[in-house]
Structures are given as structure tokens and as C-alpha cells.
């Protein structure tokens, strides 16, 4: 492995029952990069993110973080977990206020109160929910909820951020806002981002590198430019040109 890869995957396989839904022989995520993950529905993209976020164990194979195996000790696992976070495809907001949703992960990390308040208020401002900090999260509109889920992850200042369709429910202005935030986060804090998206334009706008999945298999990975303009595989070519039938 090279120093620049923050996550490395080796001979990974995931089965549900006898059905193998994911198979990755070898892949690496570069540190400080935004990596796009594309592929048809059911290709295993969410499954991959869930495994990388350590929410599910792989059936076979291994994932290395920072060049090391997942530690055995519980405390070390928690520490590693806290370096990364995910925005889910179907996000679950807690039945608390907007503010408390944002503060939850920071409180779990036992940050000082003043620091929590500062960070939460800043992010509230950024995503335009300042006026609604006391509102109960389950009363937010679809788009507001999605922005909150995004902010709840970003406020943790993770080193690795997994995003599963983060802008699927948003209006164009908010898509722009979130993409801008993401790029800024990546530039200013060096956050490594893995983003699953069905929006191929979004992948091209955001991602330095792109990975294409098809039927559980990593078909092709490379610089975004290359994937979209000069794909090596026929399936990739068909998909990025919107000619894939599935």
C-alpha cells in the first residue's frame, strides 16, 4: 500500500444468505480525496459504505484503515469509529430538537459544552437552520431533514466522511450549498470523502476519483476524468453514457 491511501480493501466479500452482493478484490481510497461511487441500483454501493463504516462485518476479506487492521480492543475500535461517520441514504433523525441532534455526537465525545455550542451554532448558520434549532427534528421538511443529517455528520469534523446519496431530496439551491460545503471541507480540513451518487454530473463536479460498481463487483476505478471520458471497460462506458439497461 502507499502512504496516501487511508482505506484499503483486500479480497472483500459480502454475502446475505447465499447471495453475494459485494466482491472487491483490491481497492484503495486516497487520503484527502473525494471519491465518487457510482453504479446501478442494487450494485452494492450502500453495502460497501456500511462495511467501511464498520456497521457490518464483511463475510470475507479485510479492510485496513490508516494502513492497519481493525484493532481488537474495544476502546481502539471506538476511537477508530470516531474518526469517521456516515450520512445514510435513509437518515434517521433522533426524536429530539434540531440542536440536540447536532450535539449528540459531540456530547458522546465528551467535548466541553462551550465548544459544542460554538460548533453547533456555526453549522446551524451554515445550513440555514439557525431559526429552527429548537424545532423537533421529526417535524422538519424532507429537505431540511436531509440538511440536518448532513450537518450532524460534518459537525463531528471526521477524517473520513461517507455520504450515501446526500442530496437526493434537495432542491437545486441546497444541492449547490451542500456541494460547496463538501468541497470546502475537503480543501480546508483535508477530509477524505466517499460519496455514493446517482447523479453522474455531481460525481463529475465533486470527485477526484471515481469507482464504478456493477452487480456487486468493482468494475473500474480511476481518476474521474478518465472514468467519464475514457473508461477502460465496456460496462463503465455504457453506464456513464446512460446506455446501460438494467
Amino acid at each position: 500500500m502507499t502512504n496516501s491511501s487511508i482505506i484499503r480493501i483486500s479480497n472483500l466479500s459480502k454475502k446475505y444468505g447465499s447471495k453475494e452482493v459485494l466482491r472487491v478484490t483490491e481497492a484503495a481510497v486516497r487520503r484527502g480525496y473525494i471519491t465518487g461511487i457510482i453504479g446501478p441500483s442494487g450494485a452494492g454501493k450502500s453495502t460497501l459504505l456500511r462495511i467501511l463504516n464498520m456497521l457490518e462485518p464483511p463475510s470475507k476479506g479485510e479492510v485496513f484503515y490508516y494502513g492497519r487492521k481493525v484493532p481488537a480492543a474495544k476502546a481502539d475500535v471506538l476511537a477508530l469509529r470516531r474518526k469517521m461517520t456516515m450520512v445514510f441514504q435513509k437518515s434517521v433523525l433522533l426524536e429530539m430538537s434540531v440542536y440536540d441532534n447536532l450535539a449528540y455526537g459531540l456530547r458522546a465525545r465528551k467535548l466541553p459544552r462551550a465548544e459544542i455550542e460554538k460548533r453547533v451554532n456555526t453549522i446551524l448558520e451554515t445550513i440555514g437552520l439557525s431559526g429552527q434549532s429548537k424545532q423537533r427534528a421529526n417535524t422538519l421538511s424532507g429537505g431540511e431533514a436531509q440538511r440536518l443529517a448532513f450537518a450532524r455528520a460534518v459537525v463531528l469534523q471526521p477524517e473520513i466522511l461517507f455520504l450515501d446519496e446526500p442530496t437526493a431530496n434537495l432542491d437545486p439551491a441546497n444541492v449547490e450549498l451542500l456541494e460547496r460545503l463538501l468541497v470546502q471541507l475537503n480543501k480546508d480540513c483535508g477530509t477524505t470523502v466517499l460519496v455514493v451518487t446517482h447523479n453522474l454530473f455531481q460525481a463529475q463536479r465533486l470527485a477526484h476519483e471515481t469507482i464504478f460498481f456493477y452487480q456487486g463487483e468493482l468494475v473500474e476505478a480511476g481518476a474521474t476524468e478518465q472514468i467519464f471520458t475514457a473508461p477502460r471497460c465496456q460496462q463503465t462506458d455504457a453506464f456513464v453514457r446512460g446506455r446501460m439497461i438494467y
Partner: peptide, 22 residues
Amino acid sequence: EAVDTLLSLGAEQRLILWTIVK
């Protein structure tokens, strides 16, 4: 899904249980 969210937010086991009860 709720448990996954809490795990992803970096909550430890006891906090997760307590939050789920709440």
C-alpha cells in the same frame, strides 16, 4: 437503522442503549 445511526455518530454501547430507550 437507529442503532446504526448512533454507532456512526460515535456513541458507545451504553449511550446507544440509553438513547434507544429514550
